[in-house]
Simulated scan of single mutants.
Amino acid sequence: MDYREIIAQSKRENRRILTEYESKTILKEFGIPILNEHFIRDISELDNIVQSIKFPVVIKGVSKTIAHKTEKNLVRLYVKNAGELKSESSDIMNNREVEGILISPQITDKREFLLGLRYDNQFGYVIVFGLGGIFTEALKDISMRVCPITTDDANEMIREIKSFRLLQNIRGFGAVNIDRIAETLMNLSRLSEEVTEISEIDINPLMFDGTEPVAVDALVVLKE
């Protein structure tokens, strides 16, 4: 299912908020790096994929009606083996609002950043990069540009936040691929030019699998 089909289906269902799985499917189509994830709609499907899963993993319930999964206990971290995967997935699926399970590799790097896109009636789409996770609201360490952006804009956005030092070699953390972050910003800007039905995109956190940035969680909201 491509982004046009996802958006058309959500409109038929009178939904503005896409699920994490739908959101990531759209982002992946535009070159935003996503982890190698599995989405299942039934516990019986685990038997077909468990051999290809490298533990530990994170499992999340996917729901069209629940936006904040953690508050509903629909996120389980550091699931260590097939037995835990099956029992935790079954427990999540007991929630009648859950339509499936998203299984993702557990990222061990602790650095959390954010990428965002907002539609402004005056300026059009505005792209955001900054420190993410629990520090997003407290520190407000972000940079912004009006779309479309250039490669120079993307690199400036990355380097002008106070937390830029965290992307380099620092106290046990290795340097990450800055060029790949800039490319991701450019791809998000390109998305804003092609998918004009979107009101906002939140990628928080953006974390690092080795040196490479990956969208660990994502939310897409459509215009009214």
Rank of each mutant, 00 (worst) to 15 (best):
Glu88Pro: 05
Ser89Glu: 05
Ser89Arg: 06
Ser90Asn: 14
Ser90Ala: 15
Ser90Glu: 15
Ser90Leu: 14
Asp91Lys: 11
Asp91Ala: 10
Asp91Phe: 10
Asp91Gln: 12
Asp91Met: 03
Ile92Lys: 00
Ile92Trp: 04
Ile92Cys: 05
Ile92Glu: 01
Asn94Lys: 15
Asn94Tyr: 11
Asn95Pro: 12
Asn95Gly: 04
Arg96Leu: 13
Glu97Asp: 13
Val98Lys: 06
Glu99Ile: 07
Gly100Trp: 06
Leu102Ile: 06
Ile103Val: 08
Gln106Thr: 01
Asp109Glu: 02
Lys110Thr: 09
Lys110Trp: 06
Arg111Tyr: 13
Glu112Ile: 11
Phe113Ala: 07
Phe113Pro: 04
Leu114Lys: 06
Leu115Cys: 09
Leu115Asp: 05
Gly116Ala: 07
Gly116Ile: 04
Gly116Arg: 03
Arg118Asn: 08
Arg118Phe: 00
Arg118Met: 01
Asp120Lys: 00
Gln122Met: 11
Gln122Leu: 13
Phe123His: 12
Phe123Asp: 02
Gly124Lys: 00
Gly124Met: 03
Gly124Asn: 03
Val126Pro: 10
Ile127Arg: 13
Ile127Tyr: 02
Ile127Trp: 06
Phe129Arg: 04
Gly130Leu: 09
Gly130Tyr: 05
Gly132Ala: 04
Gly132Ile: 00
Gly133Lys: 11
Gly133Cys: 10
Ile134Tyr: 05
Phe135Asp: 10
Phe135Trp: 13
Thr136Asn: 02
Thr136His: 09
Ala138Asn: 03
Ala138Trp: 01
Ala138His: 04
Leu139Ser: 14
Leu139Lys: 12
Lys140Asp: 02
Asp141Cys: 12
Asp141Leu: 09
Asp141His: 11
Ile142Met: 09
Ile142Asp: 07
Ile142Val: 15
Met144Asn: 15
Met144Gln: 14
Arg145Pro: 15
Arg145Gly: 14
Arg145His: 10
Val146Cys: 14
Pro148Ile: 07
Ile149Tyr: 06
Ile149Leu: 08
Thr150Ala: 03
Thr150Arg: 08
Thr150Leu: 12
Thr151Arg: 15
Asp152Gln: 15
Asp152Ile: 15
Asp153Trp: 14
Ala154Arg: 06
Ala154Glu: 10
Ala154Thr: 11
Asn155Glu: 11
Asn155Met: 11
Glu156His: 12
Met157Ala: 04
Met157Gln: 10
Ile158Lys: 04
Arg159Met: 03
Glu160Asn: 12
Glu160Trp: 03
Glu160Tyr: 11
Glu160Lys: 07
Glu160Gly: 01
Ile161Tyr: 07
Ile161Leu: 05
Lys162Asp: 02
Lys162Leu: 01
Ser163Leu: 12
Phe164Gln: 12
Phe164Asn: 15
Arg165Asp: 05
Leu166Arg: 06
Leu166Met: 14
Leu167Pro: 04
Leu167Arg: 00
Gln168Phe: 05
Ile170Ala: 07
Ile170Val: 08
Arg171Trp: 01
Arg171His: 00
Arg171Ala: 00
Gly172Glu: 02
Phe173Val: 00
Phe173Ile: 00
Ala175Phe: 01
Ala175Thr: 02
Val176His: 01
Asp179Ser: 10
Asp179Leu: 08
Asp179Thr: 12
